[in-house]
Nucleic acid binder design. Structure first.
Length: 691
DNA sequence: GGCGCGAATAGT
DNA sequence: CTATTCGCGCCT
């Protein structure tokens, strides 16, 4: 450390050193610079918010050819060797000081293509994050062996198969037009409300998405399909193989392992395939001539990236569609308020089936009360099922499998009467009784009073039970109630992909429901109360999404399909319950969005959250206000947020979203430059508020 | 984040 | 006067 190594940056030292009879330490410092475009703008991975911008380096002649825009490089930065991406080659530097030469080109593969760079930049801006963070999400880690092993040239694939005779879009009047538009190179944008397929793979949503990809490919353009989880990836993968033939698409998921993941990704980069299906990171896939971005089930929280800056698939894909002039398709059995907002502003058009078609395709929905008719039926009581649900299941088990959806254990520790399962109510104010925290005694969620001497207002019972029982226990109880019927469970631990058409009971948590061959004869949705009674703003939206998602696996009413919602309040009709009964997700989304607008909540406004202990939080807020926070911004709070921390919410009209994000990014930069030690969490679109 | 630089301070 | 420490600003 004693010598002056690592100070090439200093002009004076450089002069002194070159005057001394000493050998230059590095060949690069004496090597000639490339004649053409001698400067490279490099995004250096410093991990520091205030250094999240390009720095310029000279390109040594020996690296001239390899140092193309998009390649990974090593550069000397502040005395260290750091990784970076070449963003651009230019003929002159903007930086006035002396430039250091690039140290090396890690690989000549230009992994950062312009379109992905633009999308990543837009994403970083929208979420007040760093470009470096977004690129880490967008570009998988390099795997040298994979790079070597994969052919440069695309392998030969046969002709694109003809479109299937029976279109999965035939039930949607606007569907045909959408497909022709895709094929002819247009950019139609739609919110598609899918219908249940009654277990027919030729008309289900994966087939429809594959058909859309086929139409896009027939017009010479590529497609990105993003789905929430691996099971859906496999379903769409199979549908794509059927629609496109082999070798025209790849799967891209985080769990593939480094080599497989990088190989698949390289196939996309090198243009061997133009169609990708994957989970959220696939939204950034460098598809050539992108013609369509599509995603399934916008409301699934898996579409939200859990790493900074927490971008949502919806935002990434919308930006990619915009940049590429590509079509956009948000698909699902239900519609989120975020997509509804697009619909209202004309960003997307609806693709929906006519009411008569819907009535046939969806199961008949019935609502079993909060335990009203329970006691009379001992078999039902032992399974803790309303008797309507029990009778429905018993009848349906003669015709095929029955799905029972059970909210996740611990999802909401809300209490009900052990005897009749009516939701437990506070004696004073009639608010819901719940477990406020793990291990804490039950209390009223409204007035906070503890529960002493509970007495059920319906049956006079004195024992409380947690209304969410969990899949395993429900499975045991149901197994006893229907002796001789095979029972399967599917949940977070192990997820069943599909079940046969033969009679069986399938107990599943939301999102883990297996597909049934030929559709379920009946679908029971348990503990509706638990889903509705969450404190979150999105409780209603989320409940509708889950119920429709499960009920959509049932047979249509025309084929005897039935869905029973259990444990919903019957004395009043709640909008989510009505949405299910009428199978009208469009109506519900519209209504829900109107309500958000009235309350000035996302997605009708943009919000950000600042979370920190009191002192640093208030400092951060001051800095934020000095960094160009628009004066339309309202600062709400602070409210307690976990141990020791407080949280401010900042709210601006949608138009001022970019200005707010840039002020937040500036705040992040200032804090990083000052090496503030206290953690201040900055988050745009905090997921627990609204959208 | 890491490092060099200059100001401030302690030790001779 | 020099040796050490500390805070600050810069990094192409």
């Amino acid at each position: 450390m004693g010598d002056v190594g690592g100070q090439e940056a200093s002009g004076q030292l450089e002069l002194i050193r070159s005057a001394l009879p000493r050998k230059p330490r590095r060949a690069a410092s004496t090597e000639a610079t490339a004649a053409h475009l001698p400067v490279a703008a490099v995004l250096v991975d410093t991990g520091l918010a205030h250094l999240d911008r390009p720095f310029e380096y000279t390109v040594p002649e020996s690296l001239d050819e390899a140092a193309q825009p998009g390649v990974r490089v090593k550069v000397r930065f502040a005395g260290q060797d750091l990784d970076g991406f070449v963003l651009e080659r230019k003929d002159a530097a903007e930086h006035e000081g002396r430039l250091t030469p690039l140290r090396k080109v890690v690989s000549p593969e230009p992994v950062l293509v312009p379109e992905v760079l633009s999308a990543a930049r837009a994403t970083a801006e929208r979420y007040a994050g760093t470009l470096g963070d977004v690129l880490r999400l967008a570009i998988p880690p390099r795997h040298a062996a994979a790079e070597r092993a994969l052919a440069t040239e695309a392998p030969e694939v046969g002709a694109l198969p003809d479109a299937a005779e029976r279109s999965a879009w035939s039930r949607y009047p606007a569907g045909r037009h959408y497909l022709t538009h895709l094929e002819s190179g247009g950019a139609p944008a739609a919110s598609w409300l899918a219908l249940p397929s009654g277990g027919d793979p030729a008309s289900d949503w994966p087939a429809a998405l594959a058909e859309a990809a086929r139409a896009t490919l027939a017009g010479g353009r590529g497609t990105v399909v993003v789905v929430p989880d691996h099971r859906d990836v496999r379903r769409v993968d199979a549908a794509l193989t059927a629609a496109l033939g082999p070798g025209r698409h790849v799967r891209l998921t985080a769990d593939q392992g480094p080599q497989a993941r990088y190989t698949a990704w390289l196939k996309v980069l090198r243009g061997h395939v133009q169609v990708v299906v994957g989970t959220r990171a696939a939204a950034f896939a460098p598809v050539r001539d992108l013609g369509l971005v599509a995603w399934w089930d916008d409301g699934d929280d898996l579409h939200e990236e859990p790493r900074a800056p927490y971008p949502h698939v919806r935002a990434v894909l919308a930006e990619r569609a915009r940049l590429a002039g590509a079509a956009l398709l948000s698909a699902g059995f239900s519609r989120t308020t975020a997509v509804q907002a697009w619909l209202q502003t004309g960003v997307v058009k609806p693709i929906e089936a006519p009411t008569a078609t819907v009535r046939q395709a969806v199961p008949r929905v019935r609502v079993a009360g909060e335990g009203v008719e329970l006691e009379r039926d001992p078999a039902a009581a032992s399974a803790h099922l309303p008797s309507l649900a029990w009778r429905t299941a018993k009848e349906a088990l003669a015709r095929g499998p029955v799905l029972v959806q059970v909210p996740r254990r611990g999802y909401l520790p809300s209490m009900s009467c052990q005897t009749c399962r009516a939701p437990a109510r506070c004696q004073q104010c009639h608010g819901p009784i719940a477990l406020p925290a793990f291990g804490a005694p039950p209390a009223c969620r409204w007035c906070g009073r503890g529960v002493a001497g509970f007495e059920c207002s319906r049956c006079g019972g004195h024992t409380l039970r947690s209304s969410v029982v969990g899949a395993r226990r429900t499975a045991e109880e149901l197994g006893r109630a229907f002796p001789g019927v095979p029972v399967h469970t599917s949940g977070s631990g192990e997820v069943l992909e599909k079940v046969a058409a033969t009679p069986s009971l399938v107990i599943a948590t939301p999102g883990a429901e297996p597909v049934a061959d030929g559709g379920y004869a009946a679908v029971l949705l348990l503990d509706a109360w638990a889903s509705l009674d969450r404190p979150a703003l999105t409780a209603g939206e989320e409940a509708v999404r889950r119920w429709l998602g499960a009920a959509a696996l049932g047979r249509g009413a025309a084929d005897g399909g039935v869905a029973v919602l259990c444990g919903a309040p019957t004395h009043t009709t709640l909008p989510p319950v009505e949405a299910l009964v009428r199978w009208d997700p469009a109506w519900f989304a519209e209504r829900e969005l109107d309500e958000r607008r009235e309350l000035r909540l996302p997605p009708t406004v943009r919000m950000a959250a600042l979370t920190a202990p009191r002192r640093p939080l208030e400092e951060a807020l001051q800095t934020l206000q000095s960094q160009g926070l628009p004066d339309t911004a309202e600062v709400l709070g602070p409210l307690p947020a976990g141990e020791e921390a407080l949280r401010h919410l900042v709210r601006v009209p949608l138009d001022d979203g970019p200005a707010m994000a840039s002020a937040l990014a500036a705040l992040r930069g200032v804090r990083s430059a000052h090496k503030e030690s206290a953690t201040v969490t900055i988050r745009v679109d905090p997921s627990d508020v609204g959208t």
